[in-house]
Design a protein around this nucleic acid. Structure first.
Lengths: 219, 219
DNA sequence: TTATTTTGTTAGATTAGTCTAACTTTATAT
DNA sequence: ATATAAAGTTAGACTAATCTAACAAAATAA
């Protein structure tokens, strides 16, 4: 059985891996807010346990076993977030920190129950996919709003790097998942977008915001 | 903020205190399955933090602060048990181990929500009282079934030392909280009781069992 | 009352997870 | 191509929580 600490390393590694499949010690240490030597020695430990592939001066990679374990932790996190929102009435901006703790609970029945009560959800309240019981994630094919063109109509499908403040910002303008957005205008010099959706006819979203919003194009 | 470890000491101390108000290092070390020197040094640490009163060779006592913190942990434990049973469909024999983990979660909103969704329950699924938000417990005035007399009719109110197996044993004979029992006969030589309740007309309960069942007499 | 057992304490070792300081390797920028 | 910067590694220290071994005090029994 892995400790909370080890689980946090696996999860961070999994999340950082997802673009390149490889992660530097430096990156991981920044993510976890730990010093490099700390991370370095934990990587050796996880390599012993066959969870990570570690070679001196090479980037880090998760083994299949490591990916599976990380996936299961992320599954627990996202099921919990969904449960807190759907069954307990929390807002999507409130659930991350709680799920961060509950994800480490050793009680498969608990998460199985959440899954059942929620009707086997496939995404969490922020639109991120929930890995299956084997930790396998089904990748979704979303596009950044910032990569869309003027005149397109798209559906808001997920938000990335969802901090408290950002989610409250979205709440404030009723930007909930599922909302259909029409891109009225893009300012070419700074990437600011003017969009309309629901009852709002002309909301302005900075490029920074548009880069954090993932949308579905084939409507 | 206290560690999980410290919280477990406080909780154990609280639970053991409830008869005498005082606990020996030996008792506590047995309860926690730790060696005496381990407990001893933790007691010094908790004494520094003003959670425990520790004097060499004297029994241990919780301070008011210690009682409050312990009470709050027990509140979280019992609210969780109740939530798991009432809202998630677990059996009363399944919830202890899960609650043992969730009780350490730092998220007052989570427990406040459970409390609300449950309608401010005062007892957990085993009949134990749930401390209030300040950790204060309202003691209940129950009697052991084994202390009742032949001919009495009583209501099953709580079970003590509720292990998995014992709870399953009770499930097996529909001995749920709230059931009204009539004591038909007590074997004087071994304390075995013959009781009737619900559809069951002559169940035999050993003294060991009767000592673990708490009942309400004033019906 | 003295001897024995039980309980409590002290001292020192161990493990997990963190750190800083010093050094090495790799990458980057003249 | 070499100097400098960034990233990675090693060595050694620290804290929390545990342990064992040895010793001290208190309780119990003879």
């Amino acid at each position: 059985m892995n400790s909370f600490t080890e689980e946090n390393y696996l999860k961070a590694l999994f999340n950082l891996s997802n673009e390149k499949g490889e992660v530097s010690v430096n990156e991981l240490s920044r993510q976890l807010q730990l010093k490099m030597p700390t991370v370095n020695s934990m990587m050796k430990k996880l390599a012993e346990k066959k969870l990570v592939i570690y070679e001196s001066y090479k980037p880090l990679r998760l083994t299949e076993k490591g990916k599976k374990e990380a996936g299961i932790i992320i599954r627990k996190h996202r099921l919990t977030e969904m449960y807190l929102v759907e069954k307990m009435g929390f807002g999507w901006e409130q659930v991350h920190d709680i799920a961060e703790q509950i994800e480490h609970i050793k009680a498969p029945e608990l998460f199985a129950r959440m899954d059942t009560l929620l009707g086997h959800p496939t995404v969490d309240p922020h639109g991120s996919p929930i890995p299956d019981k084997n930790g396998k994630i089904r990748w979704l094919h979303y596009t950044k709003l910032s990569d869309c063109a003027e005149g397109e109509t798209v559906k808001l499908a997920a938000v990335t790097h969802s901090s408290d403040e950002f989610l409250k910002f979205l709440n404030g303008r009723s930007l909930n998942l599922g909302v259909k957005l029409r891109i009225k205008k893009i300012e070419s010099f700074d990437g600011t977008m003017e969009v309309s959706y629901g009852k709002r006819n002309a909301e302005t979203l900075s490029k920074i915001v548009c880069e954090k919003l993932l949308v579905e194009k084939n409507l």
